[in-house]
Amino acid sequence: MSSPATTETWAPTGRTVATICAVGILVVGQLYVVLPVLGDLAAAWGTSRAAATWTTTAFGLAYGAGFLVTGPLSDRWGRRPVIVTGLAATAVSTLVVITAPNLGAGLAARILQGLTASFFAPAAFAYLAERIAPARRVFALTCLTSSFLGAGVIAQVLAQVIDDVFGWRAVFVTGALSFTVSAVVLHAVLEPGKRRAAASAGTVFTAFATLLRTPRLTLLYLSCLAVLGSFVGIYTGVQLAPPAGAGAGGAALLALRASAIPAMIAIPLLATRLAAINPELRLISALAAAGAAAGITAVPLGGLWVAAWLFVFVASVAIAAPAAVQAIAARAGEARGAATALYTFALFLGAATGPQLTNLVAGNGFTAVALVIAALGFTGSTLAFASTKLRTR
């Protein structure tokens, strides 16, 4: 039986997980809010819709790269200070986007926004891993990764609604206000942690190098590129080359985006049962299922057909994301903080490259997009499977 002193160290699961996940939707949602307003951005900045997709890539690259710095910062300064400071800074950087007069300035603003937003994810993962009771930890991590994926759907739906009523600038003004409120709320909800010993930059990057020299971890990181790469890629395709029956905008696209929201709710509720399955097997199976579902959407049988299989696709990605971080953490030893930073970097590097992958084939219609995304999912599954064959080496 655990002593009272031990049980008192855990943060309250419900309040902590609900708040962090709600803010996670807001933070990661900034990657996706531009997808429904690509046409408006292109018109405001005098460019093409295809060129405007670089606003997603710019944010994603900066966001992912920032993890390599902000992860170690949270180890040194503590989880709560890094999270709260990052949210406050992101409130400001989000407002900067609406001041951009052209695409070049818009890309610079999105890079700044991505860098400030990157303070959240590594510290949030580490906080849940350290402060939530072990019996509830898989549930907490699954909820957080699901919130990141749910952001891809929820943020697009809300951005489209706000844009239709108030215009694209209101999307970012709403985001800035929400970040301000989130900083205040999380400062109150999160518990202060102990200040950690400072680690030198050399120590931090030595840990990264050690992890990447481990072949089985390298393969797992490469498989992570397919998780959000396929997710952002297929929704970019929905915007640039809508499937037959979905139309080019309005209610049909809104319904198509919203069709996957139930998957975001269902997967965390199944977290305990899913946790009983080996994380590598979950990752392999989920990425394969995502590839298969994406491939099936290539069959032109109408909007409802695509919506149904997008539900399966999103559910599969929602299973793959927490499975990947659990598989990586299990093999990282004492370098858990560095391993998580590399995981989130790989995740959002994939998210940054997904739109450009879609751009290459969007001119050939949604079928071409779906087939490319299917290939990406199967490639990720193959890489994860290959990592298991190196287990005993």
Rank of each mutant, 00 (worst) to 15 (best):
P36H: 09
A44T: 12
T47V: 08
T56G: 15
W45G: 03
L38P: 06
P36C: 08
A51E: 12
D40I: 00
T47D: 10
L38G: 07
A58W: 04
V34K: 03
F59G: 02
L38S: 06
A58G: 13
A52Q: 01
A44K: 06
G46V: 01
T53N: 01
T56N: 14
T56Y: 05
Y32T: 09
P36R: 04
V33C: 11
A43S: 15
Y32R: 04
G39D: 14
L38M: 11
G39T: 07
S48T: 15
V37G: 03
D40H: 12
F59E: 03
T47I: 08
A52E: 01
W45V: 01
A44M: 05
G39Y: 07
A43K: 14
L38C: 07
T47A: 12
A51D: 12
A42T: 06
G60K: 08
G46D: 13
T47K: 05
W54T: 05
A42H: 09
T57S: 15
L31W: 02
W54A: 11
A43C: 10
G46N: 13
L31M: 15
L38A: 10
A50Q: 13
Y32F: 15
V33I: 14
G39N: 11
P36V: 02
L41W: 04
P36Y: 06
T47P: 10
A51K: 02
T57K: 06
L41V: 14
A42C: 13
F59V: 10
L41I: 14
G46Q: 11
R49W: 03
T47Y: 01
S48W: 00
A43R: 15
P36M: 04
L41G: 00
A44Y: 10
Y32M: 04
L31R: 07
A50Y: 05
A50D: 15
G46M: 09
L35W: 01
T47L: 05
W54G: 11
G46W: 08
G39V: 02
R49N: 07
A58H: 04
T57V: 11
T53R: 06
L41N: 00
T56S: 15
R49I: 13
A58K: 05
V34D: 04
T57Q: 12
T57P: 09
T56V: 15
G60W: 04
R49E: 14
G39H: 08
T53Y: 07
A42F: 13
F59L: 15
